[in-house]
Lab assay of single mutants.
Amino acid sequence: LVRYRTISKIPQITLNFVDLKGDPFLASPTSDREIIAPKIKERTHNVTEKVTQVLSLGADVLPEYKLQAPRIHRWTILHYSPFKAVWDWLILLLVIYTAVFTPYSAAFLLKETEEGPPATECGYACQPLAVVDLIVDIMFIVDILINFRTTYVNANEEVVSHPGRIAVHYFKGWFLIDMVAAIPFDLLIFGSGSEELIGLLKTARLLRLVRVARKLDRYSEYGAAVLFLLMCTFALIAHWLACIWYAIGNMEQPHMDSRIGWLHNLGDQIGKPYNSSGLGGPSIKDKYVTALYFTFSSLTSVGFGNVSPNTNSEKIFSICVMLIGSLMYASIFGNVSAIIQRLYSGTARYHTQMLRVREFIRFHQIPNPLRQRLEEYFQHAWSYTNGIDMNAVLKGFPECLQADICLHLNRSLLQHCKPFRGATKGCLRALAMKFKTTHAPPGDTLVHAGDLLTALYFISRGSIEILRGDVVVAILGKNDIFGEPLNLYARPGKSNGDVRALTYCDLHKIHR
């Protein structure tokens, strides 16, 4: 019993810090008490220290592992850092350059016999395009090294910054494609005289377009951006097909006994025919423009016929181009109408809503002055909100995010209106959640004399007048207030005048 009563005193000691020596009952000389009392004092002292730490809000209350900052290894790049964003855009520009100039170089340097010394005699450094290609190869190699040090988000939505895990993730992902696209074939085969082989191998750079397509997928929600990307894709495919079309004609031209190829026909049409040795002929500019003209006309199913396939190889390629053109029509131009419709969806919704308003007016036989006010209010409210119901949009977000959005939407009023000066951010967040926005066209009466005042109004834009009878008592403008002081009276009061809008007004109100 003594032991039980001794232990039962522990909660009292913990909360009230009572010393055991003052209790005459606990001072009985028993061996059990002498053993338990020192333990009680020690526990009391420890609990006292913990309570003191909690009340003082000291940093040592938290466990040590929670006080440590997340460790980022040296030379690790955050995937959302500004440097990584700028670097990704730079790589994107280099990939676009590669997609345009690599097929052009591979096709127009394929057994090209233009006048001038061969590239091997001039030297590697004197070729501007080769120098640019070398810079692109170096940048792609540097990009691989950067990807080995860039964080990523795993399946659990955690940012991984450990170098080993980053390397394994990159090896399992895009490393092989990036490595093949970054191989400097110019340096590996330079001086061997195989410019045709170098041009063909350099087309491996186009593998990076797969990554670019995935990154550009984030802009699919913007109709104008999608339309622009589709047109660029169409032009890029036409450019690639033009390079292939020229390569076919250029390879067949020296081996044909009869002059029936499209390059021969082009030379005869523009007065620059090929001679018996295969030299001469149109310039590279004429060849490229004509090839691009043929691919565009074939892809769009126009086909004027002034550039036509004559050999079997050219006919087979033309059939493939027609098939590609039909697929592009289905996948690209078939979506253009939907994209344009999405661009004008706001206008369509406006006309639909206006039609419903006019049908309501016609069905209920609203008189002319009231009908005009109804239409003007709808037009003004639509121009202010673009038909978007803010309350319906915010309803799907958590309250903390709703408060931040409301604070942002009402920031101008909260910053410049005098009653809100000096208020804490928590108070402003709470008030912003209570605001209701209303609009009024010129001549609209917001409050009639004798109406119950259940709200306090803040003028965000425009001006109003307060009338008693036919006498203008006051004219209020931006950041002015009218209405009933909230919670100042037990019952809502009545208006002693009319409140009429002089201009288009936007008002925020808080109800009782």
Rank of each mutant, 00 (worst) to 15 (best):
E64H: 09
Y65M: 13
L67I: 03
Q68Y: 06
Q68D: 05
Q68H: 13
A69L: 05
P70D: 15
P70W: 01
I72V: 12
I77C: 05
L78V: 05
L78C: 04
S81D: 01
S81H: 05
S81L: 01
P82V: 15
F83T: 07
K84F: 04
V86G: 05
V86H: 01
V86E: 01
W87E: 01
D88Q: 01
D88G: 01
W89I: 07
W89Q: 01
L90F: 11
L90S: 04
L92W: 07
L92N: 01
L94A: 13
V95G: 01
I96K: 01
F101T: 03
P103Y: 01
Y104G: 01
S105G: 01
F108R: 01
L109A: 06
L109S: 15
L110C: 15
K111L: 04
E112M: 06
G116D: 04
P118Y: 01
T120A: 08
E121H: 15
E121Y: 12
E121W: 07
G123Y: 15
G123H: 05
A125G: 08
A125E: 01
C126F: 01
C126A: 01
C126S: 01
P128R: 03
L129R: 05
A130S: 03
A130P: 01
V131N: 01
D133P: 01
L134S: 06
L134E: 01
I135L: 07
V136L: 01
V136S: 04
D137T: 08
D137N: 04
I138L: 12
I138E: 01
I141S: 05
I141R: 01
D143M: 01
I144N: 01
I144D: 01
L145M: 15
I146E: 01
T150N: 01
A155V: 11
E158F: 04
V160A: 03
S161F: 10
H162C: 11
H162E: 09
G164M: 14
G164S: 10
G164Q: 11
G164F: 14
A167N: 01
A167F: 07
V168S: 09
F171W: 04
K172S: 04
K172G: 05
G173Q: 08
D178A: 01
V180D: 01
A182V: 10
I183A: 10
P184N: 04
L188I: 09
I189Y: 11
F190T: 13
F190Y: 13
G191F: 04
G191D: 04
S192I: 06
G193F: 12
E195T: 15
L201T: 05
K202Y: 01
R205C: 01
R205E: 09
R205M: 01
R208K: 06
L209K: 01
R211K: 07
V212Y: 12
R214V: 05
K215Y: 03
L216A: 09
L216E: 01
L216P: 01
S220T: 04
S220M: 09
Y222F: 15
Y222I: 05
G223R: 04
A225N: 05
A225E: 04
L227Y: 03
L227A: 05
L230T: 04
L230I: 10
M231C: 05
F234W: 08
L236F: 01
L236D: 01
I237E: 01
A238C: 03
A238L: 01
H239M: 01
W240Q: 01
A242P: 01
C243H: 01
C243M: 01
C243K: 01
I244E: 01
Y246T: 01
G249K: 01
N250W: 06
M251K: 04
P254L: 05
M256S: 15
I260T: 04
W262I: 01
H264T: 03
G267Q: 01
I270P: 01
P273N: 03
S276V: 04
S276T: 11
S276P: 05
S277G: 04
G278P: 01
L279I: 07
L279H: 14
G280F: 01
P282C: 01
P282Q: 01
P282N: 01
I284T: 13
K285M: 13
K285D: 01
D286A: 01
D286R: 01
K287R: 04
K287H: 01
T290H: 05
T290F: 01
Y293G: 01
T295R: 01
T295L: 05
L299S: 01
S301H: 15
G303F: 01
G305D: 01
G305L: 01
N306H: 01
N306W: 01
N306T: 01
V307F: 01
P309Q: 01
P309I: 01
T311S: 01
N312H: 01
S313E: 11
S313G: 04
E314D: 01
V321R: 01
M322R: 03
L323C: 05
I324K: 01
G325D: 01
G325P: 01
G325W: 01
Y329A: 15
A330Y: 04
I332F: 05
N335A: 03
N335D: 03
S337G: 14
I339C: 06
I340W: 09
I340T: 05
R342F: 05
L343E: 03
T347E: 12
T347C: 04
A348N: 03
A348E: 08
L355E: 11
L355T: 10
V357Q: 03
R358A: 04
E359H: 04
F360N: 01
F360E: 03
I361S: 06
F363K: 06
H364D: 03
Q365I: 01
P367W: 01
P367E: 15
N368I: 05
N368D: 08
P369Y: 01
R371M: 03
Q372M: 13
Y377R: 05
Q379P: 02
H380I: 03
H380V: 08
A381G: 10
S383R: 07
S383T: 09
Y384G: 05
M390V: 05
N391K: 05
L394F: 13
K395W: 03
K395E: 13
K395D: 07
G396F: 03
G396Y: 05
F397I: 06
F397T: 07
L401T: 03
L401E: 01
Q402D: 01
Q402T: 03
A403L: 01
A403S: 06
D404Y: 01
D404S: 03
N410T: 07
N410Y: 07
S412Y: 11
L413F: 04
L414A: 02
H416S: 10
P419I: 15
A423G: 06
T424N: 14
G426C: 04
G426L: 02
C427R: 01
L428S: 04
A430N: 12
A430L: 12
L431R: 02
A432K: 01
M433V: 07
M433K: 09
K436L: 09
K436E: 14
K436C: 06
T438D: 08
H439I: 07
P442Y: 01
G443C: 01
G443H: 06
D444K: 03
T445A: 07
T445R: 04
T445Q: 13
V447R: 02
H448P: 01
A449I: 08
